[in-house]
Design a protein around this nucleic acid. Structure first.
Lengths: 242, 242
DNA sequence: CCCAGCGCTTAACCTATGTTAATTTCCCGA
DNA sequence: TCGGGAAATTAACATAGGTTAAGCGCTGGG
């Protein structure tokens, strides 16, 4: 029974038995964290790298004026803060959105993972894809209208959650509308307006925590979504590299 | 006479003589590239990593509607596309803005650099800072008004260019207003409006290609600029790491 | 030296989105 | 089952920023 981390990393490199065993070994001492709890705070340096196994967390930052921008969703299989291994302090915060199951991984254990070439490659790929996602978010917020932005986020999450087996034509989306608004850089009032539109055009429905996407093709087209940046199905990447 | 790459990487790790020699050796076969020329295109995979030595280049992407978002400025000392060593294809394009001097570095040579622990650490830090910059840009575009956004970009470039010795209280900024508009996600008309305001408030002047910042403190305050995310002066980072 | 073209500037007008605030719905605990 | 608080919804109004278009001023080529 493979954990989400194995599922995800297998998308980037062919992992041998031993690689998988090592990864499964990392996922010990799972901790349950309530919603709206910080895992790491701006300015601090954590002794652990955090890995999400269940639930939604996010990377975020407040501006001087007190506005929050969510800069990434961290879903099952995602490392939250691999960079603390190297950088002196966090330049942003990480917090749960829904209740989460997370693992705190000590630095030495991360370094041990990186000793294994295939794992190292896969983790590097995952980190590069994280950057690619961030770039796409910038395009999204910088160039698209609110409808498109929202649709884009829904599409991206669909594909990302499918990788770890958590989506088919919909998924559990335990966010508040305010969270989504802080993601796409609009007010919550406007987010709601746009959401109503998508619902009325029968593109999606979202009730309780369940999002259903009724017409993914139309939604992708509407939002200008192109999945290239997720680098899905690029298994092996350039295996000769490392 | 150290090149900009050495200058920059020394900010992240204490490089030994040999490290510096190796870096200087990389900077052979400098190529001059005219303005508005692509160094790498979305969808392709380059055989080389590009390093900027002089001039401004950028990371960019067009949306389906034909709008351009600039996602990063690449200034002297910056690697443009380290990730091609690992990923199968570019998910965005890289192009020069002004005429540039660049070096095309073959993959094997990059891998050779990464064999040296200090260099490897420094390059990793640089890559992590690039991500941090990207996150800050997302905050900028998502949460701040156009004045603040523009001021923020000016502040960031000042600090980044100082690292490589290319700025004091101003710097050469060879961009068009359209380039800047595509950076902060506004129309060029609005960019111009905001620019006039900053000029009239005597915060900056920008004539020809020379930007002068008259009151950096006030500009930083106005734009909510906090330099933490650049991780300047964190030399050594966590040297025990790699 | 003059013309063509591009980039900058300005103005007028329009729309997407923000703000405030009132109302309703939902969910959870007593 | 009821009551309270948070989240969602809606409306009315305000504004930042987009669009279009016209005029201006360099700058480089003939």
């Amino acid at each position: 029974m493979d954990n989400v981390l194995v599922k995800k990393l297998q998308g980037y490199a062919r992992l041998c038995e031993e690689d998988q065993r090592v990864l499964n070994a990392v996922v010990r001492d799972v901790r349950t964290v309530p919603a709206h709890t910080d895992l790491a705070r701006e300015g601090e340096k954590s002794a652990f790298v955090h890995l999400v196994l269940e639930g939604f967390a996010c990377r975020y930052k407040f501006t001087a004026e007190g506005n929050r921008q969510i800069m990434a969703f961290l879903v099952p299989g995602d490392f939250c803060d691999l960079h603390v291994v190297v950088l002196k302090q966090m330049d942003h915060s990480i917090g749960t959105i829904s209740p989460c199951k997370v693992v705190d991984i000590p630095h030495e254990q991360i370094l041990a993972l990186l000793q294994r070439p295939r794992l190292s490659l896969a983790m590097l790929c995952a980190a590069l894809v994280d950057s690619a996602v961030l770039r796409e978010w910038l395009v999204n917020v910088g160039q698209r209208g609110a409808r498109q932005r929202l649709g884009h986020v829904f599409c991206e999450l669909l594909l990302r959650l499918r990788i770890v087996g958590l989506a088919d034509n919909g998924y559990e989306l335990p966010l508040s509308q305010t969270d989504l608004a802080d993601t796409i850089g609009t007010s919550s009032v406007h987010l709601n307006r746009v959401l109503q539109e998508l619902r009325q055009e029968n593109l999606i429905s979202w009730k309780g925590e369940t999002l259903a996407i009724h017409d993914i093709d139309r939604l992708m087209k509407l939002s200008g979504f192109n999945s290239n940046y997720l680098h899905i199905g690029m298994q092996g990447a350039d295996e000769s590299a490392l």
